[in-house]
Design a protein around this nucleic acid. Structure first.
Length: 883
RNA sequence: GGGGAAUUAGCUCAGUUGGCCAGAGCACCUGCCUUGCACGCAGGGGGUCAAGGGUUCGACUCCCUUAUUCUCCA
């Protein structure tokens, strides 16, 4: 039986023999593209070629691409695992022609590979061709059909016409598109095939009559108005699902039965003690876990950690879904998925070395995520149990949907688990209410996120934007095109130039700011971004005369600080690897004019000593006046030979730019200083954890570093002045803290003593009434806090006490009324009533609880009257004075 | 990007419409009893209730701002 690895090699070797260049898989996680978070098809990395924004490096290319799909018509996350053929992550085998071969070769080679190399019997194969569309004025794809006829010995019923839905491929609303031809395979047993011929089941959702390969022939361009125009250069884009192909070749009925998944599933079985193929709900869980583990591990290897927004959040959700299935179906309440990483690596590690290299960090991150989610589950369980108990007390059995939604929305407790627990308690969930709340939230979010982009207005023909910003910050430019974009009611303008000195946000370095001027007006550029290989300058308004010649000027000071910070990032990266070890890998980077932030893999805290050593080393490199050496357009192999490190999860072209400062050698497209001395000074301002196994350092350079240090020194100076100390301020402060503690102790004791003596005085002057013993009077100059103290002491010693005391403190009056427990129980006396009647005398108000009430006021002279009034009220209600 | 929530002792968390001097368990210290598998008993230390404003006689509690974290939607 052909193994998965051999099959992948066979495919790549086959197309190599047809003069294709084999390229490596692009990262699965896409950075710097707001429109797409993950690679979802093999053609993603060639998008710019199809759009005409970039010239192809090779005319024929083939690869195996790791892809991730979590939404779309056939890939709803909640469906994965329930059946045997959906996945979140999958590999796509693809071959491409950029303006080179077309339908004939694409079809014949596909046929040759499947029938001669893989020996799939041709009677099990079916192909589809586009039936044509009168509405679009596109004819039936006779050309493709002809070539297919040449392939099949018996073409009858094996070439099927398909509609626009299945057989016309479009990249988006606008852009390149064309008819496609799919290849389907029927893997049913012979008996079933005799009963019902396969051509009746093509594209009918049958799990064993499936599409394995889609050949797209790009020959049109769809314009904004909807009409199609012929493209000058025609392309081929094909994609074949690798997992499905394995299933076919290995004679299995399920993708999960191939050697891609089985080792992981048997790993899960042995860890959980629940074997595969015994019980349906166990099997679903096994499939979910195997699929999701793959996705999450690959994502982490690409540098995307689970987190709480965007791509990171998608990854977190996928992992949590796996934990949830493990928890409910396999009864795993402890982290276990991280233990399966070695099995995954045994399957995928050879072709994807980024997995093997980062095994430790992958396991740790997964472990930590599992633990965190199990904790949220525990919390949710507690909350739900409390609510269930409350409802049961009221004799209700309908659990409110809004509560279930709150559990899900605020605490991340999945609704299916809520339902499971409710069933166990013979209760039911108001699912309609839940769904209403959920869709209300969706509407709210969608309304807020709408961005409407207008059509481009072309001013000047220019294929690409030439970037001249490495050498200069000023440039004479033409506006090539512009459009208006509406972001939440605010209108901004996108400008594209023929050439530009503006650096577009990329590789962690933020986009340049600045302005353009034409002599008649000045337009401010607030940011520069990259979209589909276009450099877009964001401006506040459209120039009144866009066709004029403009001078584009980058904010020089900001650019210079950014360059300082970017170069410093390289130096620090080098220093970290030197001091902490070679396991340090960049996991993220942000470079702004103000500061730099660098995330990297490291498994323990960076000690203050190590921080100091890194800082020292970077500053040494700054002081050595190391000049930059930049090599543009170097082939990747040469760059690697120069000692440059390629980052996992980063997409590189064939030719790369290498930036070196002495021993620091990096692949980088950013702007840098000419000499390290320009940085001036480097200072680390914080170090911390950002995820399991990932640390983050923030630092400042140049003027920023100086400002930071001066600020700290100023604080120190202020402290020294305040301490009037000439010696060591730290020693002085610690002495002060110790003294302060001792003083507080003394004060507490003295206040206690004062309270005790006031209490004794009150006790001596107490008056016994029928229902209580009245303690009243003015206590000289104590805080409301001390009054409370006295009252509490009296309450504890005398359950029949009625305390009415007041004091003047800081020019304000405080008043307190307090009753012993017995008084509260046996009489109608209420401290709140009394205090409310008496408080006006001191020009204030108050309140409290029946046994204790306090009031404050601004008129201390009224204190005696207030106490008198309160005493009168109490005596009145509690009977006469006993002689 | 938008909504919801959280932040209280070294750790895990209680704290009811604003007022019983801010609590429990674990950990720590002291003593006793015991010598062992989360020992037990008695006592003790430890808090700017995330930060900053505001409302109030009075704020852990209500309002606003900020920070951090969690969570859902996009």
């Amino acid at each position: 039986m052909m193994k998965a690895g051999e099959l992948r090699d066979a495919y790549l070797n086959f197309f190599r023999s047809k003069q294709h260049t084999i390229v490596s898989s692009a990262p699965m996680v896409i950075k710097n593209d707001p429109t797409l978070m993950f690679t979802n098809a093999g053609m993603n990395q060639f998008k710019d070629i199809f759009l005409g924004n970039q010239a192809p490096a090779h005319n024929r290319v083939a690869n195996s691409q790791k892809c991730l799909r979590v939404s779309g018509k056939h890939n709803d996350l909640e469906e994965v695992g329930l059946d045997t053929y959906h996945h979140t992550m999958f590999e796509m085998l693809g071959n491409w022609s950029f303006g080179d071969y077309f339908k004939k070769e694409a079809i014949e080679w596909a046929w040759e590979f499947l029938t001669r190399q893989l020996n799939i019997p041709e009677e099990r194969l079916y192909s589809t061709v586009f039936e044509g569309s009168a509405e679009e004025d596109v004819p039936r794809d006779d050309e493709a059909a002809e070539y297919w006829k040449g392939c099949f010995r018996n073409p009858e019923n094996h070439i099927i016409e398909g509609s626009k839905k299945d057989n016309f491929w479009e990249m988006g609303e606008t852009g390149p598109c064309g008819p496609c031809s799919e290849i389907h395979v029927d893997i049913r047993p012979d008996s079933e095939r005799r009963d019902k011929p396969g051509h009746l089941l093509v594209n009918k959702g049958h799990p064993h009559v499936i599409e394995i390969w889609n050949l797209v022939f790009i020959q049109y361009n769809r314009k904004a108005g909807g009409e199609l125009e012929q493209l000058p250069a025609r392309h081929v884009d094909t994609g074949m699902g690798f997992e499905r192909l394995c299933m076919v070749i290995q004679g299995k009925k399920s993708n999960y039965d191939t050697d891609i998944f089985l080792p992981i599933i048997s790993g899960t079985a042995s860890v959980t003690g629940k074997s595969y193929g015994k019980e349906e709900r166990w099997d679903i869980a096994h499939r979910v876990i195997a699929d999701h583990l793959r996705t999450v591990a690959f994502s982490i290897a690409d540098g995307q950690m689970p987190s709480n927004n965007r791509a990171g959040y998608v990854i977190r959700r996928i992992l949590r879904r796996a934990v949830r299935y493990g928890y409910t179906s396999l009864e795993m309440s402890e982290p276990f998925i991280y233990k399966l990483v070695p099995e995954l690596i045994s399957v995928m590690g050879r072709h994807y070395p980024e997995l093997t290299a980062q095994q430790e960090i992958i396991s740790r991150v997964i472990f930590e995520e599992e633990q965190a989610f199990l904790k949220t589950l525990g919390k949710g369980l507690k909350m739900i149990e409390r609510q269930v108990a409350a409802l049961k007390n009221e004799g209700k059995d309908l659990f409110p949907g809004s509560d279930a939604f709150e559990l899900f929305d605020t605490y991340g407790f999945p609704v299916d688990l809520t339902q499971l627990i409710l069933r166990e308690n013979s209760m039911r969930l108001d699912i309609d209410e839940y769904n209403r709340e959920l869709s209300a939230q969706k509407v709210r979010s969608r309304d807020d996120a709408t961005i409407t982009a207008g059509d481009w207005t072309v001013v000047h023909d220019a294929d690409t934007t030439v970037f001249t910003g490495y050498d200069r910050t000023e440039e004479t430019v033409h506006i090539a095109r512009y459009r208006k974009v509406n972001v939440r009611g605010k209108e901004v303008v996108h400008l594209v130039f023929d050439r530009t000195p503006f650096y577009a946000e990329s590789g962690g370095q933020v986009g340049d700011k600045g302005h353009i001027s034409s002599g008649v007006e000045v337009i401010v550029i607030t940011d520069t971004i990259k979209e589909n290989n276009l450099t877009i300058h964001i401006a506040e308004k459209v120039p009144s005369e866009p066709s004029r010649i403009f001078t584009a000027v980058v904010d020089h000071a900001a650019r210079h600080q950014t360059a300082n910070n970017h170069t410093a990032t390289h130096l620090m990266h080098h220093a970290l690897r030197h001091i902490l070890g070679k396991h340090v890998e960049q996991k993220g980077s942000l470079v702004t004019p103000d500061k730099l932030r660098f995330d990297f893999s490291h498994f323990s805290q960076v000690t203050p000593g190590e921080i100091a050593a890194v800082e020292q080393m970077v500053n040494d490199m700054i002081m050595k006046n190391i000049p930059s050496e930049v090599v543009d357009e170097t082939p990747m192999e040469e760059a690697l030979a120069m000692g440059a490190m390629a980052l996992f999860g980063e997409k590189y072209g064939e030719k790369v730019r290498v930036v070196s400062f002495g021993e620091s050698v990096e692949l980088c497209g950013g702007t840098h200083v000419e000499n390290t001395s320009s940085i001036g000074l480097f200072k680390i301002i914080s170090e911390g954890a950002v995820a399991a196994g990932v640390r983050r350092i923030e630092a400042v350079t140049g003027r920023g570093a100086l400002a930071y240090i001066n600020d700290r020194l100023k604080t120190l100076e202020e402290i020294t002045v305040m301490l009037r100390s000439t010696g060591n301020p730290a020693a002085n402060v610690s002495k002060l803290i110790a003294e302060n503690g001792a003083l507080r102790h003394t004060i507490e004791k003295m206040e206690g003593a004062a309270a005790a003596s006031s209490r004794r005085e009150l006790e001596q002057n107490a008056v016994a009434l029928d229902a209580c013993n009245l303690y009243s009077g003015v206590v000289p100059d104590v805080s409301a806090e001390t009054l409370k103290n006295i009252a509490h002491q009296l309450r504890q010693s005398d359950g029949r006490c009625a305390v009415i005391i007041g004091s003047e403190n800081d020019g304000k009056a405080s008043l307190l009324v307090c009753f012993g427990d017995e008084v509260v129980k046996t009489t109608s006396l209420n401290a709140v009533d009394i205090i409310k009647s008496a408080a006006p005398e001191i020009n204030g108000g108050g309140g409290g609880q029946p046994f204790l009430a306090t009031a404050g006021g601004k008129k201390p002279e009224g204190l005696r009257n207030a106490i008198g009034k309160a005493v009168a009220l109490v005596t009145d209600r509690a009977g006469n004075v006993k002689k």
